[in-house]
Simulated scan of single mutants.
Amino acid sequence: MKLIFLLIVGIILYFIARNYKTEKFENIKLDIKERFDGDLMNHEAGLLVALMAKVAKADGQVCELEAEMLKHTFTDISRHFENQEEIREKLKQIYAKEKESFDNTIEICDKLYKVTKNHYQKRVKIIEYLLNLAFIDKDFSQTEFMIAEDIANALKIKRADFENLVNRFENFYRQQKENQALSLEKAYVILESNENDDNNTLKKNYRKLVKQHHPDIVSGQGASQSIIDEATSKLQEINEAYEIIKKHRGI
């Protein structure tokens, strides 16, 4: 059980490190493999994946980011077992089965609570991981909140701890959205355009700026190396701005 606890922490850190900062963990060792031949629904690994299935399907669909996270989770968990291919396949089967219904959610939580009864912080980390999965598409629906809340209650997570985790994720993604909006606004400024310009106007402005700042053209005008370097940097900025706007507009 100690191994799976450390594994869960490792998985949390792996995904959260990409987009979400949490406290630092040290001395995590995952160099010991266990062999498990029993029913994974009596093991922390299987119970975690079962709850992931409930959360992932709470809003009726599994987005690309959720699917990618699930795929890596199956791999990361199974590679810490001697019989990893067998474990990975069983985890996939558990996920496929458990995503079909929410009826046994509390029953699964009760099992997980029994095997983690003396490890409150472990259960908090499990909730944190499940919330990370729910928030990963940047749309934490009311249904996802209700499922997460039910799981937290069944795992006997203190209300204050649950709300603190939800608030941390909400604040993080709110800040990320604000930063994205600022980046988009700046991109329009760089392209000497505005959000009301149609795609053709945007493209014309982009081409005009490329011609104006292309290092080959600047070099051909007899500019000094410092000006050429400045033009190269400016062109990169123009290209990045254009890509941001294209991605936002879906063009």
Rank of each mutant, 00 (worst) to 15 (best):
V62A: 00
F135P: 00
F74M: 05
A154H: 08
K246H: 09
V9F: 01
D139C: 05
K2C: 04
I77H: 01
E144M: 08
A160Y: 08
K186G: 06
S224Q: 08
T73G: 01
H213D: 09
V55H: 02
R88M: 14
Q61C: 13
H248R: 12
I245S: 02
S219D: 06
F74T: 02
S233L: 10
Y129N: 04
H43M: 11
P215T: 00
Q121P: 03
V115C: 08
N27Q: 11
V124P: 05
L235W: 04
E98I: 03
K90W: 04
N200E: 15
D197N: 14
S101A: 11
Q121E: 10
G250I: 04
D39L: 02
I151E: 02
S233C: 05
Y188Q: 05
D39G: 02
E185N: 13
I126Y: 02
H214E: 05
N27G: 10
E144L: 10
Y206T: 07
H213Q: 12
L191R: 06
K208G: 06
E243Y: 11
F135T: 00
T116N: 10
F169W: 13
A45Y: 06
L70V: 05
D198K: 06
D103C: 05
E178G: 04
S193W: 11
V62S: 00
N179D: 15
V218P: 00
F25N: 04
H72D: 15
I190G: 07
R174K: 15
C109V: 01
G46V: 09
Y120I: 07
E128H: 11
L184D: 02
R88G: 10
E230L: 14
T201S: 12
K208D: 12
R168Q: 11
L48T: 15
Q84K: 12
D161S: 10
I238H: 08
A50E: 05
A181M: 10
L182S: 11
E98Q: 12
L209I: 06
I87G: 07
R249H: 15
C109S: 04
Y206W: 10
L130H: 01
I217S: 10
I126H: 01
L91C: 02
S101P: 02
C109G: 00
E98L: 04
K24D: 13
A187F: 04
Q236S: 15
V124S: 03
N200W: 11
G222P: 07
A160N: 10
L191H: 08
K125G: 07
K234R: 13
E163R: 09
I127C: 08
Y95D: 01
M1N: 07
L30Y: 01
K246I: 11
K234D: 03
V62R: 00
H119E: 13
D31W: 07
Q221C: 12
V124E: 10
N171G: 03
L40W: 05
Y120P: 01
V9N: 01
Y188T: 08
A223G: 00
Y173V: 04
Q175G: 14
D139H: 11
V189S: 07
E230Q: 15
H214D: 12
I12Q: 09
F172M: 14
